[in-house]
């Protein structure tokens, strides 16, 4: 199995009025292709910052981050944008769909920045909408469908450029239990059938239980990294 993510001695400092704040204090982790990883940890433990760096939305202060065997620390903004476009699919807690655009246009948006023509965009957008079971709503606006449906549209958008890696930041945080289960089932299906690597941040053990590997952050360091079932057992 090829490695998708390799991180070595990663640190992240923030400048604040109160002085230098060290959020990540040396993180080492390697994630292989096809893994399903849940990241947990109390708030302030640095897991969100870690996710932002994983997603190339933020840069590390020191250390190395290889994504898909590319050293991201040396890349410029445009190259990072291209990585986000082609290698990563994002799913956010707040869905982050564009309110003025219908579902097809929302789903097809990454293809616009990949420079793909209008015709192919439409075909592929319909295809992924169908795979999340929403092809009937193609021309609806985001506020005309339910939260669970909106999150499925966001997942469709993340999938459209056939990414290697899906990063999900509390994807079920705004959803009820039943809808959360549906979304997590969708992630499991993508992981099992499409072999897409999934990294997911959550603070709910129920959600983390869907994953195969669990990483627990405490105070800017990885405190536990292992199979999910072992960790769950240790909590009981």
């Amino acid at each position: 199995m090829a490695e998708v993510i390799r991180i070595e001695a990663l640190t992240k400092n923030y400048h604040t009025d109160a002085g230098e704040v060290c959020v990540l204090k040396g993180v080492d982790i390697t994630i292989q292709s096809g893994e399903f990883v849940a990241i947990m940890g109390p708030s302030g433990s640095g897991k969100s910052t870690f996710m932002n760096i994983l997603g190339c939305l933020d840069k590390a202060t020191s250390g190395n981050y290889f994504l898909n065997e590319t050293d991201t620390t040396t890349l410029d903004k445009d190259a990072l944008a291209s990585l986000r476009n082609h290698v990563i699919g994002f799913v956010f807690q707040g869905f982050n769909l564009l309110a003025r655009k219908n579902l097809i246009d929302n789903v097809a948006l990454p293809l616009v920045y990949a420079g793909i023509g209008a015709k192919e965009r439409k075909v592929r957008a319909l295809e992924v909408l169908k795979s999340v079971g929403l092809e009937a709503y193609a021309t609806y606006l985001p506020n005309q469908i339910s939260g669970g449906q909106q999150q499925r549209v966001a997942i469709a958008r993340a999938l459209i450029n056939r990414p290697k890696l899906i990063l999900a930041d509390e994807p079920t945080g705004n959803l009820d239990t039943k809808t959360s289960q549906e979304i997590m089932d969708l992630f499991c299906k993508l992981n099992d059938q499409e072999k897409i690597t999934i990294v997911l941040v959550t603070h709910e053990p129920d959600i983390a239980a869907y994953s195969k590997r669990l990483v627990n952050f405490v105070d800017g360091r990885i405190q536990h990294d292992g199979l999910t079932e072992h960790f769950q057992a240790s909590l009981v």
């Binding site: 903004k77 445009d78 944008a81 986000r84 476009n85 082609h86 994002f90 982050n96 948006l109 920045y113």
Partner: peptide
């Protein structure tokens, strides 16, 4: 926020 979303999914500057 819209600009943030666009940048996150791959819009270049």
């Amino acid at each position: 926020r819209e600009i943030g979303i666009r940048i996150a999914i791959g819009a270049k500057q």
